[in-house]
Nucleic acid binder design. Structure first.
Length: 275
DNA sequence: AGGTTGACCTGGACGC
DNA sequence: TGCGTCCAGGTCAACC
């Protein structure tokens, strides 16, 4: 479900509520698809650790942990949460009803609980124990310079839409924001990356950053069941210009928005405004 | 090697 | 009310 702006919203919300707290105990479901690290390893790393910081790397939520009791000599670890399509990370009172498809509950020193819920089980939980910190590859779209951004696509024969979704190039852009960025840049999703001019790529760089920044400011896009750590919906879906608007008039020229399938994903564009 | 496709899952919306 | 079909914001293995 979530792309960079939604993951950032959730990570910031969770950080504000639970950073500095110690995890007293952890329960996990026994659904193997959800756990990229063995559940025992996750329980071991989390229990007794303090939550130093919750932040975002690409589409992954990273929870930096440290041991409160250094006597146990355990290495600091990072707890990684990937929300997949339908994953949710919520903070609630222990009395709150346990939702169907709950896969992890961490009891905190404050008495509240951090819970991970994921019906489709495309989300993944793991621990990262190596020094240097979690690095999935790719560059952060909000930090990358125009020059490096342009270089990412040089010589690539794949459609620009597929390249934008490739997390080893840019990390964090997903289907909605790829379509919205391409619309703002005036580039059709099916154009070969290598065939796009340097000037247009510069425009795309600005469009990607603009779209992501606007979406973060509005708390992300709520489609179906996405909500942030407070249960609040985002509002960026009201700003979508092409995503989910097949057959509706382009907001600039009134041409009907088209939908095609690229890299197995729905891709929306205006045939008149995007070349 | 780079690029594309299906599989992984559940559930909601829609048509009959 | 129910059943079948299609669709979904992500990723990865397997294939060309």
């Amino acid at each position: 479900m979530p792309e960079l702006p939604e993951v950032e919203t959730v990570a910031n919300g969770v950080h504000a509520r639970i950073h500095g707290q110690t995890i007293r105990s952890v329960w996990t479901s026994n659904k193997p698809q959800t756990f990229k690290s063995p559940p025992d390893e996750i329980i071991e790393a989390l229990t007794g650790s303090r939550i130093e910081r919750v932040h975002r790397v690409g589409k992954t939520i990273v929870v930096d942990l440290s041991r409160k009791d250094l006597s146990r000599k355990k290495k600091p670890a990072q707890f990684l949460v990937h929300l997949g399509m339908t994953g949710r990370l919520v903070i609630c009172e222990p009395a709150a009803e346990i939702a169907k498809h709950t896969h992890l509950i961490a009891k905190l020193a404050s008495g509240r609980e951090l819970r991970f819920i994921d019906p489709r089980m495309f989300g993944k939980l793991s621990v990262h124990l190596h020094p240097g910190g979690f690095d999935p590859g790719g560059v952060e779209p909000l930090e990358v310079s125009e020059e490096r951004f342009v270089a990412l696509f040089r010589g690539r024969k794949t459609p620009i839409k597929s390249a934008l979704l490739n997390q080893k190039l840019l990390r964090g852009v997903g289907n909605i924001y790829a379509d919205e960025s391409l619309f703002r840049a005036g580039i059709r999703p099916g154009r070969r990356a290598a065939a796009i001019t340097r000037e247009q790529l510069g425009k795309l760089h600005r469009a990607v950053q603009e779209v992501l920044r606007e979406a973060i400011a509005l708390g992300g896009s709520s489609i179906n069941d996405y909500v942030d750590a407070d249960g609040e919906e985002g509002f960026f879906q009201l700003q979508h210009r092409v995503y989910g608007r097949e057959g509706e008039p382009c907001l600039l020229c009134e041409t009907a928005i088209r939908r095609v399938v690229l890299a197995g994903r729905s891709s929306h564009y205006c045939a008149n405004c995007q070349k």
